[in-house]
Design a binder for these strands. Structure first.
Length: 552
RNA sequence: UGGGGUGUCGCCAAGCGGCAAGGCACCAGGUUUUGAUCCUGGCAUUCAGAGGUUCGAAUCCUCUCACCCCAGCCA
């Protein structure tokens, strides 16, 4: 992958550290907890961490922060690895797990106890909350705070041995219950959880908390720049406290950046899970989901997602990014790289009355207007065709550039035709158009000088293929669905999915393979569904429409 | 109201004492067998606000205001 030059506050810090010799090699890490699928916000974190390592000749680890077995699973571990790979990144060495450091972490906990810097606390969760104080009032010391080192050592060992019930005891750091930073009020290092861990099985009944684990994991791996989001800023003093209190063999530093908030979307794992659990969407990889796997199924490319992350930059300010930028990124990639094809979503039959009944012309057409390397495909042209019902009107003003009775239009990549008659049923609905071709207009303008004003797509009625088209729109119709008093469930877009069960598409599409992307001309970008599409059943998902500046 | 942060065009974002990059969006033209693409031009006398320092401030100082995060044995 190309090393695009990055310029942001993190790169500045790294450049200085390298220049001053504070670090010899840049080591970062992407540390997801395997308790859900990756979403666009994670994609940004991945882009930041892997991107910085790449740009500075360093390395980036993939490390599962699996310190809370209750919420985690192997399913998520696998999906996360697949997503990172799909995005085009390669982690350094083997996949890491916080759980492989559990023994080291425990040894360090013992060390803190021996130093008189940690103690076993008997307060239950409710009591601990009361003792913690509030944002404006100092907390009170736990009655367990002054236990002897010997007693603490004994109790900790027995916690590990499973002698106590869940919640009965915790190990806490002895720092300062009056600290204005809540994280420093004797934070919890270990809690008792008698559950099977997806990696370590039943080896442990006590598990380290994020705070006690994260910085030490970084130190063990030699991470130099531990990059996370802004909400962890208050944890940095604690992160440093552990690193300075423990005999670790490297000195990582934590830096924070502002998390990504795209408009019209939510990125809370809890809320995304709710959408899945309540069947609002069909799963984590529903094409409407802002998950990496959802965007993949929707037709977004890794290139576009990475481009988007580069476009929005990395800063410490917290804002809402217009999804139009994401849409721009995917259009830019697909405009350049997606082969063109024709599809008719709302079919209206056209009979070319002057065209021989049995005749079939094989029109060889480029797959892309400027990319010759994308090849050609064959378009069969016949007497009966389908065009989109929206592309015909009995009468219209001059702004309308499609087919009108008595007027001409260009059939894309084929002839100019002129509409003669609209055939209607008893109810007055137009069911068929009779038209005729203008001679010698294949690749040429009409000889009489009367040029058609517009161009429309078409599919041969005799050769077209039926296809199911899934038309997606944004999942929410509110710019910030979950900000302030908003209940995101109140802002679901009822039209986020509409099915076109029987569109007509050009025959070349029969050979499309799952995940192949196309531009259906004048309609938008579509991708053959990753799971449901086959040559026997054509299924395409709409990724994004073409930019539309026509307000008529 | 304790602590930690952030405030530069509708949105994102450069800028780090010398006189406001860029992208998205938008608007106006041009090209065009996709009302797409592409091309050209427009789009902050002003940097949350008020004072101050300075020949000179978005950049330094002071105060004010707004918004975000923190009281999980979640991460």
């Amino acid at each position: 992958m190309e090393n695009t030059p990055i310029s942001n506050f993190l790169q500045t810090i790294i450049s200085d550290d390298l220049a001053e010799g504070r670090v010899a090699e840049v080591v970062t890490r992407f540390p997801p907890e395997p308790n859900g699928y990756l979403h666009i916000g994670h994609a940004k974190s991945i882009s930041v961490n892997f991107g910085l390592a790449q740009a500075n000749g360093g390395r980036c680890n993939l490390r599962f922060d699996d310190t809370n077995p209750e919420k985690e699973s192997q399913e998520f571990i696998e999906s996360i690895q697949a997503d990172v790979k799909w995005l085009g990144y390669e982690w350094s060495g083997e996949v890491r797990y916080a759980s492989t450091y559990f023994q080291q972490l425990y040894d360090w906990a013992v060390f803190l106890v021996e130093q008189g810097k940690a103690y076993v606390c008997d307060l239950n969760a409710e009591e601990a909350r009361l003792y913690r104080g509030t944002l404006t009032e100092a907390g009170k010391n736990s009655p367990s705070r002054d236990r002897s080192v010997e007693e603490n050592l004994d109790l900790l060992e027995r916690m590990r041995a499973g002698e106590f019930d869940e919640g009965a005891k915790v190990l806490r750091a002895k720092i300062d219950m009056a600290s204005p930073n809540m994280n420093m009020r004797d934070p919890i290092l270990y809690r008792i959880r008698k559950v099977t861990h997806h990696q370590t099985g039943n080896d442990w009944v006590i598990y380290p908390t994020y705070d006690f684990a994260h910085g030490q994991e970084d130190a063990i791996e030699g991470v130099t720049h531990s990059i996370c989001t802004l909400e962890f800023e208050d944890h940095r003093p604690l992160y440093d406290w552990f690193i300075e209190s423990l005999p670790v063999n490297s000195r990582p530093h934590q830096y924070e950046f502002g998390r990504l908030n795209p408009s019209y979307t939510i990125t809370s794992k809890r809320k995304l899970k709710q959408l899945v659990d309540e069947d609002v969407v069909i799963g984590w990889d529903d094409p409407r989901m802002p998950t990496v796997s959802g965007m993949r199924r929707r037709g977004y490319s890794p290139t576009a997602i990475r481009k988007f992350c580069d476009m929005i930059g990395t800063t410490r300010s917290d804002g809402v990014v217009d999804v139009a930028m994401l849409e721009f990124a995917i259009r830019e990639d697909l405009n350049e790289n997606a082969p063109r094809a024709m599809a008719v979503l709302n079919p209206l039959k056209v009979v070319l009355t002057d065209y021989p009944v049995e005749q079939v012309e094989e029109l060889v057409t480029p797959c892309h207007p400027s990319r010759e390397d994308l090849g050609e495909r064959m378009l069969p042209f016949t007497r009966e065709l389908y065009i989109d019902a929206d592309d015909f009107r009995e009468e219209a003003n001059k702004k309308y550039k499609r087919l009108v009775l008595g007027k001409r239009v260009r059939l894309r990549n084929a002839y100019v035709i002129e509409a003669d008659e609209a055939i209607k049923d008893e109810a007055g609905n137009i069911i068929e158009i009779h038209a005729h071709t203008i001679p010698n207009t294949l690749g040429e303008n009409p000889e009489d000088g009367i040029k058609p004003k517009g161009v429309i797509q078409w599919v041969s009625a005799a050769h077209g293929e039926r296809a199911e088209l899934r038309i997606y729109d944004r999942l929410f119709n509110h710019e910030s669905p979950d900000k302030g008093d908003n209940d995101f469930m109140d802002h679901l877009n009822p039209e986020s999915l509409s099915l076109v069960k029987a569109a007509w598409v050009e025959p070349s599409l029969k050979s499309a393979v799952p995940e192949q992307r196309f531009q259906f001309e004048r309609e938008g970008y579509f991708v053959a569904d990753r799971y449901d599409h086959s040559s026997e059943r054509l299924v395409f998902n709409k990724t994004i429409g073409l930019r539309d500046t026509w307000n008529g």
